[in-house]
Write a protein that binds this DNA or RNA. Structure first.
Lengths: 195, 195
DNA sequence: GTCTATAGCTGGATAGAC
DNA sequence: GTCTATCCAGCTATAGAC
């Protein structure tokens, strides 16, 4: 892996774990194992690193969703798979929150020019969810349903980060799965209630 | 208003708008109109200001909820009033997100010792909501319902901050109000659908 | 209580040797 | 491409005059 790629990888992780502003060149350089000066051969400013990190996240998100298309059978199962993210990524979310929501908010507070690009990751999820609901025959309110599922994921991520309560997460996942079942009269999945 | 109180007020606002880490003593001093040096008569460290800010938020939250008890008639109306916060605070949320969720997450990423105290604001809302649901006869799952309403508020706040879409907020508020109606067979409120 | 002055450090960013 | 050395601005925090 090239140095530039290593820098983007390390920055991606550190921006998530510590936040963009508190992450210094020194800490990224330490992880990668290069000197601070060497940075400026690959990136001229800190913002350029952020832009590369966002581009990497956009690409990996698209890739992940494309993978799901090959893996999961029906649109409804794909949506359920998205819902399960809060469980499969439980530990990271407990410690650092959602990578998408926390970055967009930090950039909002900083009034950062790359804020809109960071929101792009949300838009990828939103459009992908909308497509699933359209495939389920709900073209009229597909975007509304997509935003509702995103609302769930952001709410759960924030409260999991605050309280660290796994049972709560499972209850909310069950609740949303029950809602999905209700919306589409799906009998292939039975949401188990209670912890 | 005393200088110390003015400092806490200004810090409270700036920590919300810019975040804790990016807010410098200089910017707080500029707002209050005092010199940087004068700070250290009132607070020894930046963390001490944060602690005072959190204490102030705990107090003002308790005060607000106490006010609602006098104002709103029924427990259900009080819950609906909480739900409406995302509308009445729309502009701030659009620009800076939820003051509670964004601070707890920032402190989580910083691994800050005051993280638990900041979560205390969430706990006040959680306990208060739980009490309302208990008063509505749902003592068995009152805490679960309380967390669900909190999940809604955090999800909506994060996505309103990202997308800035007011119609989306109204749709989600309508959806949660319909859910409340369904839960308690309430006929005093009719959720209007659509924009 | 409030000020000025300043210490001591760390941040992002640059210059130039190799 | 990578390094060391360095600049300068900004930060938290302190000392001491008023």
């Amino acid at each position: 892996m090239g140095t530039r790629e290593q820098i983007v990888d390390a920055a991606n992780r550190l921006f998530y774990e510590q936040g963009y502003e508190p992450t210094s060149f020194a800490s990224i350089a330490e992880v990668v194992g290069i000197s601070r000066g060497n940075f400026y051969y690959h990136f001229r400013t800190k913002d350029e690193i952020l832009e590369a990190v966002i581009q990497a996240r956009l690409a990996s998100t698209r890739e992940m969703l494309a993978c799901w298309h090959e893996g999961a059978a029906s649109p409804l199962e794909r949506v359920r798979r998205f819902v399960e993210i809060v469980i499969s990524n439980r530990e990271d979310i407990e410690n650092y929150g959602c990578p998408v929501g926390t970055l967009t908010n930090e950039l909002a507070k900083l009034d950062h020019p790359l804020r809109a690009q960071a929101v792009g990751v949300f838009e990828i999820f939103r459009n992908w969810l909308r497509e699933q609901f359209e495939a389920l025959g709900r073209s009229a309110d597909a975007d509304d349903l997509a935003l509702h599922v995103l609302t769930f994921s952001q709410g759960v991520a924030t409260l999991l980060n605050a309280f660290g309560d796994r049972d709560y997460v499972q209850r909310e996942v069950n609740r949303l799965n029950a809602w999905l079942t209700e919306q589409f009269s799906d009998t292939s999945h039975v949401a188990s209630r209670g912890p």
